[in-house]
C-alpha cells in the first residue's frame, strides 16, 4: 500500500499536461485567422464599392463638363444667327460631333449625347428660340435605353 502511494506521489501530474497549450494555440489562431479574413473581406468590399462610386462621380462630371463644352460650342454657333434656317449656321452645326438638330416652327432644337462610360450617356436637348436657349433635357440615360423603357410601374395594391 505504502509503496503504491509513494509511486503515485512520484508520477503525480505536475501542472498542465503536454498538448493543451498547442491545442489552445491552434484554436485561437484559427479564430483570429477567420476574423481577420472576414474583416479584410468586408473592408475590401467597402473599398471596392466606394472606389466604384467615386470613379462614377468623376466620370459623370467629366462627361458633364464635356456636354457643357458642346453646349457652349453650339451656343456660339447659333446665338450669332437670327435665322434658324440659315444654311451656313446649320452646316456649322453639322460639324459639331454628335449634335442633331431639328427645325421647329418656333425655333431650333438641338440634341446630343455625351458618354459617361460604356453603359451611360448624358442626353442633352436644348431649344433655341428668340435668341435665347432653354434646356429641355439634361439627363443620364443608359446606352441601350429605348424610348419606351419597361419599368415596374405600380398598378395598384
Amino acid at each position: 500500500m505504502d509503496g503504491k502511494a509513494d509511486g503515485r506521489k512520484n508520477s503525480r501530474p505536475a501542472g498542465i499536461g503536454t498538448g493543451y497549450l498547442s491545442l489552445m494555440m491552434i484554436f485561437v489562431t484559427l479564430c483570429l485567422t477567420a476574423l481577420a479574413a472576414l474583416s479584410f473581406s468586408a473592408a475590401r468590399n467597402e473599398k471596392k464599392f466606394s472606389a466604384r462610386s467615386a470613379d462614377y462621380t468623376a466620370e459623370y462630371y467629366a462627361a458633364d463638363l464635356e456636354a457643357k463644352r458642346t453646349l457652349a460650342e453650339i451656343d456660339s454657333i447659333v446665338s450669332g444667327c437670327s435665322d434658324y434656317r440659315d444654311f451656313m449656321m446649320l452646316a456649322e452645326l453639322d460639324e459639331v460631333s454628335g449634335a442633331e438638330y431639328e427645325i421647329l416652327h418656333d425655333g431650333l432644337a438641338v440634341s446630343w449625347k455625351t458618354p459617361i462610360n460604356d453603359r451611360q450617356n448624358i442626353l442633352c436637348r436644348i431649344k433655341f428660340s428668340a435668341g435665347e436657349f432653354e434646356i429641355l433635357s439634361w439627363r443620364t440615360v443608359s446606352s441601350g435605353e429605348t424610348e419606351e423603357a419597361p419599368l415596374g410601374v405600380w398598378l395598384g395594391e
Partner: peptide
C-alpha cells in the same frame, strides 16, 4: 485577443453596413 479581434471585426463590418 479573441475579444479584441471580434470587436475589431464587428466595428469594420458595422462601419461597412452603415456606410453602405
Amino acid at each position: 485577443i479573441i475579444t479584441v479581434a471580434a470587436s475589431a471585426y464587428g466595428r469594420i463590418s458595422g462601419n461597412y453596413d452603415n456606410t453602405f
